[in-house]
Design a protein around this nucleic acid. Structure first.
Lengths: 191, 191
DNA sequence: TCGCGACCTTACGGACTCAAACGATAACCC
DNA sequence: GGGTTATCGTTTGAGTCCGTAAGGTCGCGA
């Protein structure tokens, strides 16, 4: 866990590599750091609070969403948690088997499934969340409350941008060409 | 890809859930947004530039690191790329099989392995990186250059904090107790 | 020269991940 | 009503990633 190459060093190396090609450095550094920070933070949480509760990051997020918002339809949970519907099916089933989550069908619309915490799940979150927040405070220790607010604002702008314009952008980039299929995933059935 | 519940709404729900328990909201929101932004950005890149080049995010990062820094020992590459050495073994082998990366043993220390881009790899990066940077500019479109700098600074503080104090913190949290084993991982063979 | 420690690799085991395909159900339109 | 279309959640398939455990190789100090 030593410290990486310094930013300035990296900048210089990039500059040397791409002397002529015009590169927007500010954006490059920002994006690189978003990912690095996310990985570092996630790692820290999984290896501290979450490990003790036998939760992964994803399963915690799912529990958290349902905890905060109460009984919810699965598609909304998936969206809030930032995972696909398919992934949620697996995660929620695991949580259900551990007695933390309930899955009930919607009373009037038979297609929907509702998720809700059990008492045990409720209890676990009441216990884990304060510890989780304590780690949030720890990782942000070098930032003031105000800086945290600024950080959140800036990040939110990026999220909004990709969510509101990303799809359109991707289509535009393809420029008519058919998109390469994903390497993984179920193959389309020919018929 | 609609927009999530508003921050203010979430805040209110959290408040209702934890009226008495003291929670630091600023840090909570900041951390939550780091992860959301990272996921959104990664998704966008994988579905735009990287898909066309048949690269995953991770494999791109590995190539990028080696591209910028030149021939490098694997452990350093893993650290810079933010992945485990085991994962790097797999990723680099894949890249090698595609003729983008070379793996040579260290001339004086036989334990080490050095990674270097092949000409084909150089060529690919020279082509992909500008496109990648264009997407970085796209996702950061709602931020000024200065704001990008601020964002990078704030994130860097978080990375530094977790990297420099994270390990210590995790040990302190355990307070002598033996850490829970991970649920996954290879089982010890009895013999 | 013996053994420790650092290093890369292989092999699992488990959990996630997405996208496409699928089956059930609901909503709409004649 | 009856058929078509849209919307759910779930299943399936292929793949990624991690961390642990072993094993092999080597460097270096005692």
């Amino acid at each position: 866990m030593t410290v990486h190459r310094s930013i300035r060093e990296t900048e210089k190396a990039v500059q040397a590599k791409l002397g002529d090609t015009p590169i927007r450095h500010a954006q490059m550094v920002a994006v690189a750091n978003i990912y690095r920070a996310a990985a570092a933070v996630r790692q820290h949480f999984e290896n501290s609070v979450l490990r003790g509760a036998e939760l992964t990051w994803t399963s915690f997020v799912v529990l958290w969403v349902v905890w905060i918002w109460g009984e919810m339809e699965t598609r909304h949970v998936a969206e809030e948690a930032g995972i696909s519907k398919g992934t949620l099916t697996g995660v929620s089933r695991t949580l259900q088997s551990r007695g933390l989550l309930e899955r009930n069908s919607h009373p009037s619309d038979g297609r929907l499934v509702l998720l809700r915490l059990t008492d045990k799940g409720e209890q676990l979150m009441a216990e884990v969340f304060p510890a989780f927040n304590a780690e949030e405070v720890f990782v942000a220790e070098r930032l003031t409350d105000e800086e945290c607010g600024t950080l959140a604002d800036l990040l939110r702008k990026i999220v909004m941008q990709t969510e509101e314009n990303g799809e359109e952008r991707r289509v535009a980039l393809l420029d008519g060409a058919d998109p390469r299929p994903r390497r993984s995933g179920r193959r389309p059935s020919r018929s």
